[in-house]
Each structure stands twice: as structure tokens, then as C-alpha cells.
Design a protein around this nucleic acid. Sequence first.
DNA 1: CCGGTATCTGGGAGCGCTCCCAAGAGCATC
DNA 2: GATGCTCTTGGGAGCGCTCCCAGATACCGG
Lengths: 330, 330
Amino acid sequence: MIEPRPTIETVAARAGVGRGTASRVVNGSSQVSPAARAAVLKAIDELGYVPNRAARNLVTRRTDCVALVISEPGERLFAEPYFAGIVRGISAALAETPLQLWLSMVQSTAERDRANRFLTREHVDGVMMLSQHGDDPLPGKVLASGLPLVLCGRPLAGPEMPFVDADNESGGRLAGQHFLDLGRRRIATIAGPQDMAAGVARLQGFRDVVGGDLVEYGDFSEESGARAMAALLEREPALDAVFAASDPMAFGAMRVLKAAGRRIPEDVAVIGFDGSPGGRHSDPPLTSVFQPAEEMGREMTRLLLTQLAGEVPTETRVIVGTRLELRGSA
Amino acid sequence: MIEPRPTIETVAARAGVGRGTASRVVNGSSQVSPAARAAVLKAIDELGYVPNRAARNLVTRRTDCVALVISEPGERLFAEPYFAGIVRGISAALAETPLQLWLSMVQSTAERDRANRFLTREHVDGVMMLSQHGDDPLPGKVLASGLPLVLCGRPLAGPEMPFVDADNESGGRLAGQHFLDLGRRRIATIAGPQDMAAGVARLQGFRDVVGGDLVEYGDFSEESGARAMAALLEREPALDAVFAASDPMAFGAMRVLKAAGRRIPEDVAVIGFDGSPGGRHSDPPLTSVFQPAEEMGREMTRLLLTQLAGEVPTETRVIVGTRLELRGSA
DNA sequence: CCGGTATCTGGGAGCGCTCCCAAGAGCATC
DNA sequence: GATGCTCTTGGGAGCGCTCCCAGATACCGG
């Protein structure tokens, strides 16, 4: 512990070979005789040698680090299990590589500054980004710097960039179809913000099936869901189903519906979007369109790894399926 | 972008000073004349110079990285907003430092191997660890390696290590006292696992106030809460209050109570522990002991930074307060 | 036995930085 | 004007590694 860590030179000396040969063994080159390889491996083991990352990075000009940037002000996104799933997927996928995951939350201005400064080749080999807002300048900057980038969530506008997204449109269709199957007739929706691709696509899919114009807009938050629900009830007191483009909005809507004396699902069926575990304990349990966050994390990693391997990316977008998680509210 | 990044030598040349002086300016040494400093800063700005991290780390023998290790199998811990809050707190606190946050989830064996290999001075300057189980070998290993370490959650046994924890005992007391204030008489508790400090302390505090032996044990999961509740009802059908040592256990308990025809809170008052947002939408909304996760994250960071600064840690434990979040279930 | 080829090896060079030493410059003092 | 400070400066050394080249060795066929 106090004595200095062994260097590759120490290893080479102990194995009775040159520095070059030792390095070759460490890096798995095939140009080494079996005898030399065995000697070096033995020395490595005896000395507990671990390559110095800084020295290696200095010469290879790689960092073996990828960044996961959560560019979302406020606590909304991060608190959701959806996010946790993504991180879990990424972490699992990276476990098989030498890459480390550098986590950067960008909420305050200080953090934004930092991210701007650190998202360079000096610091990371690639970037994965959770940024739902179309006007976020960060993805564009990273792309312009030539750093490999994968987004979570389809960017609404701007230049083409690789992304992984849930099939929001078909998720919306699932919700709509379920209401129709249930025989509901006056079907409303609380759409997400239309400056986010997820908001647009969920509404689009839903309307493909249901049609109609009983739509109010929220910002994915519970409060906005409550407001939208109140407005919808005012417009159409006889509505018998409502699809909210996020679970929190669905919770807000249920609160308002119950306050207005509606029974769920008897009077009004409710479907949310996310499939969050919290929905299992709501009153009633919330039926919701589930998006496979963990799979999305894995796919993001896969896409990034392809780019890092320098392969021409044949695949720049991955859409993962959604499914309806039936609980009690619809 | 194609042209090579400027080095400190480029900067020095452009500023008309020596490499040493340029380095001194970059590192904020005071031993530089105002004229030289200005020239160097100008050159840095014009060239867009960013110090090469690997080269710097190589010579300073620091990495400017700290690890956050989530050593918890399964998805339980990570999915909770409690965790999200901790990460947010850490991230915010680190934003003011040059340190980067390396996130490591240790769930699978592969990930455990990796963590074992990477949690060394070669890779990180310090480690923060979320590991609730007393028998986890990882904290001990890190401590033994001499790497600065801060735990989240008091370690149950083993050598002394710095930690930040919620005041679980007083949280338990808060719950107990609230039941007494409510005039409840037959008060039960679903305690957490007694091989975790949090489980022990929450029970301890609760019993300090309430006494009695109407106790069943769970593992913090919903399913275990349901089982424990069923057992409690069998032992004491007339119970009128129950404190669960985690929100998921409280959810499980409420499910069983409702199935048994008890009204909450009229017949049986329920209090959970965590103050998770999901509790706002349960039926009824769950009264719960809230622990300030974000503050805990900040405190962990602060403790680690003191150690990194090489100061003798006058403070090796921080206990943050809890409070009762009154919703509808008690 | 020789030239040619393939395989393996050692070690110099150099990545970009900080540390540190010695030297120069500037100034006050005697 | 010499002496002794302090403040500032340039650049050599070296961190531990990989890359690469030139040399050594082994092996082949003619």
C-alpha cells in the first residue's frame, strides 16, 4: 500500500523480458511466444500489476469513458423509474467492456457550464444523452464536436443524430384501441407538450385510432394533468375515457375525476404512459403503456459501441416496442 | 477539429513565455507577473486550449474522478426516488469541483468483478457507496485499499467508516408518537430486516415510544409487507395502527388491510418510511417518514471532499433529520 | 550451407503535463 | 557600486504507457 505500484517495467524485469513484450501481453497481442506470455502473466499476477490508466490514455488518446448526460432541469425525469431502468441497462451493457460510465446531471447553470467544458474528446470517448426538449443546445454541440453521440428519445428537429426511442406512436394506438375495445365512446386525451417528440407521437398514434378533438395539453407533470382534466370535464362532462401521455398526468387526472365524483374505471377509464411501479398502488391501479427502459439503455449502449468501433453506423435509430400494462383503471 | 488540439507548449509559444509560466497560469499559481498572466490567458482563449486530462493525471497521480457505487442486487434500491435524490445531491455538490462522477452499479457478478478491479487509486480518488447490507464485502475492501470512502447508511458491523445516514431512530419515534397522538392503542409495526442498520434503528426508535411486541419482519419489499400484515392481523385482529419501515411494505400492508375489510385510516392508521412520491397517489395517500435524500447526497460529497483535501476528518458521520410527511393514511 | 522469409524481441521516442531547480531581473540597503 | 534579498522565469526531467523500428532468432527450401 505504501510501496509504489508496479509499473510495466517492473513486470517486464521480473518476467525477464523487455518492456515491449510485457506491453504486448497486457494488450493481448498475438505476436508473443507462449513462454514469454506465461512469464509475463505470472509476473503480473505476483505483483498485482494494474496498468496505469492515465499513461495509457495519454498515448492512445482514448479515455475509456462514456458520458451519460441527463439534461433536464427540475427533478421530473430523473425521479422516474423509467430513468433508473435506462441507467441499469447502460450499466449492464457496459459491464462487458472496458468503458466506464461518467454520469452528468445538467440542471443548474453551473452544471451546464461544466458539461459544455467536459464533453470533449479530452474527457470522454462518446456521449449518451437524455434530453427530451427540442431546443436543448447540448446535443447539437456534441454532434458538432465530432464526438460519438446517442440520444434517448427522438430529437424533434435539427440535424440527424442516432437515437433510441420507445415506439410512442404505437403506444398511443394501444391506448386508443383499448378504449375502443372497451366500448368507450367519448374519449379524451391529455397530450404531452408538443415541443417534445414523445408528446407529438403519443398524441399522433392515439388520434390515428380514436380521432376526435377532445384534447388538452400538459407538460407531463401531475399538476398539468389535473388542470387539463378539469378543462376536459368542462368541455365534455360525459366523457368516459381519458388517455394521459404520462403517468403523473394520469395521476393528476384521476384526482380531479374522483373529486368530480366520477368512478374509475366504471364512469371514466384512464390510461397513462410509462408503466411506472407507482401506478400499482394508486386508486385504482393505473393501466399504462409500458416502455422498456432497461432495453432502451442497452440499445443506446450498443449504438454507441458501434460508433466507437469506428464502423460505419448502418443503424442510427432504434425503436423499441411498448405494451399495455393492464391494471385497474381501464 | 481535424487539426491537433493545442498543447500547453502551443499556448506558451503564442504568449511568448515558457512552458512553466503557462502551466503556472493554468493552475492558478500566484507566482506569475500580471503581464505574463494576461498574455497566457489571451493565448488560451484564442486557441481554445483545454488541458489534457490524461497527461495531467499521469504526473499529479490523481484522477479527478470519484465513484458512486450502488452495490445492491436487484432493482429495488435504484428504482426508488430516494436514490435519485442522492444522485442529484451528489451531482450538485460536485458541480463546484473539478471532480467527475463515475457511476457503477453492482448487480451482476460481472459488474462486481469490474468494481473490484476498478476501485483503486488508478481509477478514482474516492468512493461513495450505497450499500445497505451488512455483509457486503466491497466497503471493507475499499477501506483496506486506503481509498477515501463515504457510505450512505450506517454500516451495521465491521470497522469504523465515515457515513451519512438518515436519523432512522428518530424517524421511528416520529411515527410512534403520531400514533399515540392520534389516540391509537393497539399499535403494530412491520420492521425491516435486522441485518440492516436502517431496519434495526427504525424499529428501535418506534419501540422507544410505543413499546409492545406487535412486530413482524419484512425485507423492505411490498410482498414481505403484505405477508407481515397478514401475520399481524392474525395475531391481533383489533390492531388500529401499523408502522411499516418502508413505503413498499406499507403499500403491501394497505393492500392486505383493505382486503380484510379495514378502512384506512379510520380502522387502521398506516405510516410508511421514505416519503416516496408514489405515496401521494395511493389509496389513501400514504403518510410516511420522509428522509431528505438530496441533502444526504450533498453531505456524502462534503465528507468525501474533506478526506480528499487530506484534512484529518474531524467528522466521520453525519446524521440528517427526518420528518413526518402527513398525507391521508394516518 | 546459404539466402530469404516469418516470427519474436528489446528498447528508443514521445504522448502533454507538472515539478523543481537554477538563473535572471529588479530593488533596497550599506 | 557591490551585496543580498525577493520575485519571476525557462526549461530539463520524468510520470507510465504504447507505438514502431531495427535487430535477433528460427525455420524453410534449394
